[in-house]
């Protein structure tokens, strides 16, 4: 007999069969296009001058975009679909009517989101390989990094989406959190050139730690604070997010 969480996951996998095509498009094609537009053409100008980043810009940007994609996929998949599970398809309520516990419902969906994150990051890794942006065998660990970033971002989003009263909140979440993180948390340029307040925010954000880990893995270099520190920060995001999410789900689904 399969674990109940696996049963909840299975539901999402079946549903995904119908929509995977368009989601592959947006979770994979978009960052790849970004890589070409910024990494190659703008990179050309950057590489002409000797700069602080020390490696070709494409190689610098690639792992950053990989982590940013994990963020985008994780937040996108843990906001609207979670809200929908409560309010539109009401699939959570349906699941609760079965022997599944609230924890199973939550973990099943979270596992599905992380699977999506892992797949899109693995796909993006292949793109990086084709562009010659990988310089170390450690690059093989980047899907793990992506899953960690994904969990750190998705878990609190599950809590947020479960408590949201309107889906309009998610567009705002993207604008005030996801887009600023993507643009300023070290993906495109080093955070050292940010003013100190912005830099502090970047240090708190899960994405910067993911970018550091991912970049260290593909370039085979050291990270700013050392691997354990970055992993620890991400783990805190995951743990706090999970506790909040479980609490929100329990309140909504009444246990």
């Amino acid at each position: 007999m399969a674990h109940p969480t696996a049963l909840a996951l299975e539901f999402h996998l079946v549903a995904y069969k119908r929509t995977w095509r368009s989601s592959v498009f947006s979770s994979f094609a978009l960052p790849a296009m970004f890589l070409v537009a910024m990494g190659i053409t703008v990179g050309h100008y950057i590489d002409e001058r000797s700069t602080s980043i020390g490696v070709p810009y494409l190689d610098y940007l690639g792992p950053g975009l990989l982590a940013a994609t994990a963020l985008q996929v994780a937040v996108g998949d843990s906001t609207w679909p979670v809200y929908g599970g409560f309010h539109w398809t009401r699939v959570y309520h349906v699941m609760r009517a079965s022997p599944l516990t609230v924890g199973d419902v939550l973990r099943g969906h979270l596992a599905f989101v992380l699977l999506r994150v892992a797949l899109s990051s693995a796909g993006f890794l292949v793109v990086l390989l084709l562009f010659g942006a990988l310089h170390s065998w450690w690059a093989l660990t980047t899907p793990l990094v992506a899953v960690l970033v994904g969990a750190a971002c998705a878990a609190p989003c599950f809590a947020f989406a479960a408590r949201a009263t309107s889906d309009g909140a998610f567009a705002v979440l993207f604008r005030v959190a996801v887009v600023p993180m993507t643009l300023f948390a070290g993906v495109f340029f080093p955070v050292e050139s940010l003013p100190w307040v912005a830099r502090l925010l970047a240090y708190v954000s899960p994405l910067w730690h993911g970018v550091e880990l991912s970049r260290a893995a593909t370039l085979g270099t050291a990270t700013a604070w050392g691997v354990p520190a970055h992993v620890a920060v991400l783990a805190v995001w995951c743990a706090v997010g999970y506790v909040l999410a479980l609490r929100s789900f329990t309140r909504k689904l009444g246990d």
Binding site: M38, V42, Y45, I46, R49, S52, L183, F188, F189, L194
Partner: peptide, 13 residues
């Protein structure tokens, strides 16, 4: 604008 124009702009010149 701030990220690409200013942040990346510093690298581009």
């Amino acid at each position: 604008l701030l990220s690409i124009g200013v942040g990346v702009g510093r690298l581009v010149g």
